[in-house]
């Protein structure tokens, strides 16, 4: 497996899913159940979409930021503070999020 991103481990768990990048509020409507929500940072406007997601990956944030706290309540993996998730990841990519180690992988082709 190839490591795509390293960040701060914010909520444990290992999950595979399809990336959906949220750049604005309109993008929130594109999130479907089981997606990996990727954003610069999350905020309270995104809670409906977050509850559909299987994992969260963000550019910014610490272990006490909004995505981290919400992910821990929901029990879904979360990696924050990757600095470049929204530029390295692409919509539709299948990735594996390891919330315990703060790593996002892609399976070798």
């Amino acid at each position: 497996m190839k490591v795509l991103l390293k960040g701060i481990p914010a909520s444990g768990g290992l999950i595979q899913g399809q990336v959906k990048i949220i750049r604005n509020l309109v993008d929130l409507n594109r999130i479907e159940i089981g997606d990996i929500l990727v954003a610069s940072i999350t905020n309270p406007s995104m809670i409906v979409a977050i509850q559909k997601a299987r994992a969260i990956v963000t550019d910014h944030g610490g272990i006490c930021s909004h995505p981290a706290i919400v992910a821990r309540e929901l029990g879904i993996p979360c990696v924050v503070g990757t600095r470049e998730a929204t530029t390295v990841l692409r919509d539709g990519m299948m990735v594996i999020v390891n919330g315990e180690e703060g790593i996002v992988y892609v399976e070798d082709q």
Partner: peptide, 18 residues
């Protein structure tokens, strides 16, 4: 229950801001 709690936490952030 924890889904409910996450919704309530988000509501708090929405109402009182971070």
């Amino acid at each position: 229950i924890h889904r409910l709690s996450s919704s309530l936490l988000s509501l708090m952030w929405t109402l009182y801001f971070y």
